[in-house]
Structures are given as C-alpha cells and as structure tokens.
C-alpha cells in the first residue's frame, strides 16, 4: 500500500499494518534540528505520510517595519516576540461593528494555483491535501481583535453574522479553486479551544461558527475530499457537532487535555484523530526514553480500528531538545 492509501484506510476507520505518522516544525526548531544533525534534509529519512500546505493570505514582511507581516486580508502580524511563525495582530482592521468597514481581501488566485500545482508535483506517494488557515473565528478576530470579536458575539450579533458570511463567501471561492485539483482532502485551521473548555463556549460556536463550517465542509466534500479540522485546546463539547457536519479528522488532540481512551471509545469509530503527542508538556520535558514509552502507550490506545495519525500536537517549538525529536521520529517509524 502507498502512504496515501494507508492514510485513506485510516480515515475510513480501517486498521492498517502501519500507523501513519507526521511531524512538522516551527522555523526556529527546524533550524535547531539542522544544526544538531548537520543535515539540511535531516527529515527526508523520516518522511511522514502527509503532504500539505495552508493558505492564510501570504503574510509578507513590511519593508519599513521589521518583523511585521501584512497579509492579503490587510491584517498586520507582529512577530517580534518569541513566536516567529504566526505572531499577534498589530492593529484591528475593522475598528467598529460596522460592516461597511470590511476590507475586501485580495484573492491571489495565481499564487494559490501555483502553490496547488507545486504541492501536487512534490507529493510522492503521500496523502496530499490543502488547507485554509484562520478559516472562520480566527479570521474574525484577526479583523477585530480577540476581545471585540467575542464581545460583538453578544452585543452586535447581526454585524458578526454579516462579517462571518463575508469570510465564508471568500473561503468558498478558495475552496472552489482547491476543488479543481486532485487533492485528497481539505484542511481547516481555526482555534476554538482553551486549556479547559471552549473560548466562546459551545452555544455561541453553534450560533456563529457551526453553520459556516458546515457550508465549507459540504463544499469540500462535493468532490469526495476528506475534511480535516485543526483546533488547539479543548473542544470535546462539539465533537458530535463536527461529526454531524461531516468532519473526517480532528487534529491536535492534546493528551494533557483529552482522556485519549475516553475519546477513542466515544468518537473513535466516527472521527479520526491526528496528533496526541504533546508538544506542550511531553516533548519539552521528558527524556527520550520516557517519550518512547509514552508513544508506545498512546499507539496502543489509538491504533485500534484505524482512525489515527500519529503526530506531535503542533508544529514542534524551539524548546524541544533535538534528541527528543529524533527519538520521537524513530519511535514513530516502528508502528
């Protein structure tokens, strides 16, 4: 079986001989790994099963403001802190709950198509998909600032619905472009969780976010593509909702948050899980030997009946010792 076929079997909840795995790195950790291994292509040896890229408006560094990146939505991201990959919103683009302030984003169709083509050219035998980062709630707060976005969900509901409709409409155009290519799936990034419970809570998520995610999932599924969703934090409250609107695979699955045995038992035959190896606690704090044991135990819980992609819960941050990364990857290859 090719890697692609193995992932598809896993997503269809069929147990495979090998457990598919994946890993990715923050820019700084990748550099650490290159320095440690003295090999620019150190990861080639471990080649995971997934091949994908995300569209999120191509943030580009401003010529007159170091470490500040502006995206095609008009949002400027300040990356002068420890986080060099995303950053924080520098100033809200929409300063009041007034839909006329919505800046129509630039849809860089040429670049999106080029990236789709490149991705497909380089996929090898992997499961290949494409994604939209900051796909709904995150796009909302990147326009408004987090606090105002949440406040308006209560005080200016109509405005939030209008703005989310515009975000959704834009994303559907991007999905239509993706759908013209033979990808295996479409991935949506949108953080809804906190360490405990959801940021906005399930009722407001159902009111504002769910209907639009349902539309985007349906559009992605039109061509038989798998749908994968990323959210950091604790979103167990809405697993049933996500299954209902057609989600195939949920990514991050932080073990410090979820009881893996419980979620596997309750949802594992209907929702595939991608992640489970903690970047927040274990990869940073454990020894290589302890990590191997953790991975072994995790696989034993999650492997049964397929529906599992073994991976760190996030892009590996720069505080993870390279020895741990190598130990993790070698352990991943065993299953």
């Amino acid at each position: 079986m090719t890697k692609r076929e193995i992932v598809i079997q896993a997503l269809l909840h069929k147990e495979t001989l090998n457990v598919p795995y994946h890993a990715e790195f923050t820019l700084q950790e990748y550099e650490n790994m290159v320095n440690y291994t003295k090999d620019k292509n150190f990861f080639d040896e471990y080649e995971g099963y997934l091949h994908y890229a995300q569209y999120w408006g191509y943030p580009t560094e401003l010529p007159d403001k170091k470490e500040h990146f502006k995206d095609d939505f008009g949002v400027t991201w300040n990356r002068s802190g420890a986080d060099k990959d995303i950053g924080v919103v520098d100033n809200p683009v929409i300063s009041e709950p007034d839909i006329s302030l919505y800046p129509t984003p630039y849809l860089n169709e040429k670049r999106i198509r080029e990236e789709c083509e490149n991705l497909l050219k380089t996929k090898g035998d992997k499961f290949c998909f494409v994604g939209i980062g900051f796909s709904m709630f995150e796009r909302l707060w990147s326009y408004l600032g987090m606090e105002d976005a949440l406040i308006y969900m209560i005080t200016d509901k109509e405005f939030v619905h209008e703005l989310l409709d515009k975000i959704c409409e834009f994303n559907l155009k991007v999905i239509d472009i993706f759908n013209e290519y033979p990808f295996d799936g479409i991935y949506f990034g949108d953080d809804w969780g906190q360490q405990r419970g959801m940021i906005m809570g399930a009722p407001l998520w159902r009111e504002f976010i769910k209907p639009r995610m349902a539309k985007m999932y349906a559009r992605a599924k039109k061509n038989g593509k798998f749908v994968l969703q990323h959210s950091c934090g604790d979103i167990q409250e809405i697993f049933e909702d996500l299954i209902e609107i057609g989600l195939d695979c949920y990514q991050t699955v932080q073990p410090e948050i979820y009881n893996l045995t419980e979620i596997k038992e309750k949802y594992g035959d209907r929702l595939a899980f991608w992640g489970t190896i903690s970047t927040q606690q274990d990869l940073t704090n454990k020894t290589p030997e302890e990590l191997k044991e953790i991975i072994k135990k995790t696989v034993a819980i999650m492997k049964k009946g397929g529906g599992f992609i073994l991976a760190p819960t996030h892009a590996i941050p720069q505080d993870v010792p390279p020895e741990n990364v190598i130990a993790m990857l070698n352990e991943f290859k065993k299953y």
């Binding site: 606090e147 949440l150 406040i151 969900m153 209560i154 005080t155 906190q194 405990r196 419970g197 959801m198 940021i199 906005m200 809570g201 407001l204």
Partner: peptide, 14 residues
C-alpha cells in the same frame, strides 16, 4: 463552572 464563557465575562467586565 463552565456555565458562561469568555464573551459573557468580557461584556460583564465592560
């Protein structure tokens, strides 16, 4: 107790 969430806290604080 997870009976209200961040938005409710924000509007109350305001």
């Amino acid at each position: 107790n997870n009976e209200v969430y961040v938005p409710e806290v924000l509007v109350a604080a305001r």
